[in-house]
Amino acid sequence: MRVMVMVKATEDSEAGVMPSSELAEAMGRFNEELVNAGVMLAGDGLKPSSQGKRVAFDGPRRTVTDGPFAETRELVAGYWIWEVKDMAEAVEWVKRCPNPMPGPSEIEIRPLYELSDFDEVMTPEATELHERTRRRLAGEHN
């Protein structure tokens, strides 16, 4: 099962406060442990929402809003994509994570949809299109 593990933003992360050298090293060791265990597929930190944009959709209209965005506790400051056997394994890994922020912080874990979750609505053509895209992302050909 693939999961997205999201480090929630804090006032410090939204202000662009960089982690201490100790925290950067501890997170590097944790990431290395995840990679060595075959769990981590991807991950990165996100710059503050003041450097971001949101695009709202309403039918054919698109409205672009510049950051920063309100409700810091609802924003994401970083993420990982992990491959785990189940949610319990993901929780155990998160519990081993160093506190990702200088003060109180929160990490959210969400399962990702797999193509098979859409079997009821997928046509053979749509399935092939998505599979072809997946293969290209994985560096495969054809």
Score class of each variant (00 low, 15 high):
residue 13 S to M: 03
residue 14 E to A: 02
residue 15 A to V: 12
residue 16 G to T: 14
residue 17 V to W: 08
residue 18 M to L: 14
residue 18 M to A: 15
residue 18 M to D: 15
residue 21 S to G: 11
residue 22 E to Y: 07
residue 23 L to V: 12
residue 24 A to G: 05
residue 24 A to H: 09
residue 26 A to L: 00
residue 29 R to V: 02
residue 30 F to W: 15
residue 32 E to I: 02
residue 34 L to Y: 06
residue 35 V to A: 15
residue 35 V to H: 12
residue 35 V to D: 10
residue 35 V to N: 13
residue 35 V to P: 02
residue 38 G to H: 03
residue 39 V to Q: 04
residue 40 M to V: 03
residue 40 M to D: 02
residue 42 A to L: 09
residue 42 A to V: 08
residue 43 G to Q: 00
residue 45 G to I: 12
residue 46 L to D: 01
residue 47 K to Y: 08
residue 49 S to Y: 05
residue 50 S to M: 14
residue 53 K to R: 09
residue 53 K to H: 09
residue 53 K to W: 03
residue 54 R to I: 08
residue 56 A to E: 14
residue 57 F to L: 15
residue 57 F to E: 06
residue 58 D to W: 06
residue 58 D to I: 12
residue 59 G to S: 02
residue 63 T to S: 09
residue 64 V to D: 08
residue 66 D to W: 05
residue 66 D to K: 07
residue 68 P to H: 04
residue 70 A to G: 13
residue 70 A to K: 05
residue 71 E to S: 13
residue 72 T to Y: 02
residue 72 T to G: 07
residue 75 L to T: 01
residue 76 V to W: 05
residue 77 A to I: 00
residue 78 G to T: 06
residue 79 Y to W: 01
residue 79 Y to Q: 00
residue 79 Y to R: 01
residue 80 W to R: 00
residue 80 W to E: 01
residue 82 W to H: 04
residue 84 V to F: 05
residue 84 V to T: 07
residue 85 K to W: 01
residue 86 D to Q: 10
residue 87 M to I: 02
residue 91 V to P: 01
residue 92 E to M: 15
residue 93 W to F: 02
residue 93 W to N: 09
residue 94 V to H: 01
residue 94 V to Y: 00
residue 94 V to I: 13
residue 95 K to P: 07
residue 95 K to T: 14
residue 100 P to I: 04
residue 101 M to F: 06
residue 102 P to Y: 08
residue 105 S to I: 10
residue 106 E to A: 05
residue 108 E to G: 08
residue 108 E to H: 05
residue 108 E to Y: 07
residue 109 I to P: 09
residue 110 R to N: 10
residue 110 R to G: 00
residue 112 L to G: 06
residue 112 L to T: 11
residue 113 Y to C: 08
residue 114 E to W: 09
residue 115 L to I: 15
residue 116 S to D: 14
residue 116 S to M: 10
residue 116 S to Y: 01
residue 117 D to G: 07
residue 117 D to R: 05
residue 119 D to F: 06
residue 122 M to Y: 08
residue 123 T to K: 13
residue 123 T to H: 08
residue 124 P to N: 10
residue 125 E to C: 13
residue 126 A to H: 09
residue 127 T to V: 12
residue 127 T to F: 09
residue 129 L to F: 10
residue 132 R to H: 14
residue 132 R to M: 14
